[in-house]
């Protein structure tokens, strides 16, 4: 017995390691499919997302005409799922971009002006660290009510301090002695220094950070929507599908399981891809 385990364990590991690039390829395939779904959702879905059919309520998975079954109002789960993928991905994508642009800009400003600007950015980052993002979002949603735009902007604040910290650190080290100080010395304007020299040099690090933020934003948005405070009906997102499916956990678990499955696979794929990118592009950050 012991012999078998000691022999087979390393072989298993080697197999896992060999399979890793294949896993990355699978992750890319899945993400590609998700992007296609997001773009083509209108053509792909067999039913309208609000089309109710009270005769066909809670039809189980695999039924003819309803591949993933129907929900409590007889709406096709597959159609709703495709639309939800689009909504969740678009929100996460826009928010990731906003957060990256916002954070990088603040980081560069802190590096360029130092002094009180830097203190302000650090204080804002402290503030962000002192309030769990979920709680802050809930407060903002409580005050303003929920709308799609507000949700995107709110999610756009997620993780900005990470970009700010990276951008500030790299810009300062570049300006202290390196090429950036040299280009300033050549007479370049600050915008030229930051856009032509520093930004391209830190881009790979920032992109890797984006692969970290993206799945976290998906989880954050689906968490809020699950609580019924994010994306509002009649629009639907992955989290809010899980949230509504929860009521029918015992009778129709498929309503909740299908979107859960998509959430887990998507975040897993991005994490795998991010890990792989990190190893390839930037071995310096964890």
């Amino acid at each position: 017995m012991t012999d078998i385990t000691t022999v087979s364990a390393p072989r298993l590991i080697r197999r896992i390691r060999l399979r890793l690039p294949a896993l990355v390829a699978l992750a890319m395939l899945w993400l590609g499919a998700m992007v296609l779904v997001a773009i083509l959702a209108d053509w792909l879905r067999p039913y309208d997302i609000t089309a109710m059919n009270l005769g066909d309520r809670l039809v189980p998975m695999g039924s003819p005409g309803h591949l993933l079954g129907t929900d409590e109002l007889g709406r096709d789960v597959l159609s709703r799922l495709l639309q939800s993928i689009r909504v969740s991905l678009v929100i996460a994508f826009c928010a990731t971009l906003i957060s990256a642009v916002f954070g990088t800009t603040l980081g560069f400003l802190a590096a360029q002006f130092r002094g009180w600007v830097e203190h302000l950015v650090v204080a804002l980052a402290d503030f962000q660290a002192a309030l769990p993002f979920m709680i802050m979002s809930l407060a903002v949603l409580a005050f303003f009510g929920s709308s799609m735009w507000l949700l995107v902007c709110l999610m756009g604040f997620y993780g900005w301090e990470r970009y700010a910290r990276i951008a500030r650190g790299l810009a300062i080290s570049a300006s202290a002695q390196g090429y950036a100080a040299e280009v300033v010395q050549l007479g370049a304007s600050p915008s030229r220094v930051y856009l032509r020299h520093i930004l391209p040099n830190v881009a790979s690090t920032l992109i890797v950070s984006m692969t970290l933020t993206f799945p976290e934003i998906i989880l954050m948005e689906s968490g809020l929507s699950f609580l019924g405070l994010g994306v509002q009906p009649p629009q639907s997102s992955l989290g809010n599908m899980v949230g509504f499916g929860r009521e029918y956990l015992t009778r129709a678990p498929w309503i909740m399981l299908a979107p859960s499955f998509v959430i887990v696979l998507t975040t897993l794929s991005i994490s795998l891809l991010g890990d792989w990118l990190r190893d390839r592009l930037d071995p310096t950050i964890r």
Partner: peptide, 26 residues
């Protein structure tokens, strides 16, 4: 590289990717 090591890595991926509302409902 032991089985426990692999287990830790798997569990952490699990922790990063499965949202608590899905885990709770499951």
């Amino acid at each position: 590289e032991s089985v426990a090591d692999r287990g830790v890595i798997m569990l952490s991926i699990f922790g990063f990717t499965i949202p608590s509302f899905v885990l709770g409902l499951v």
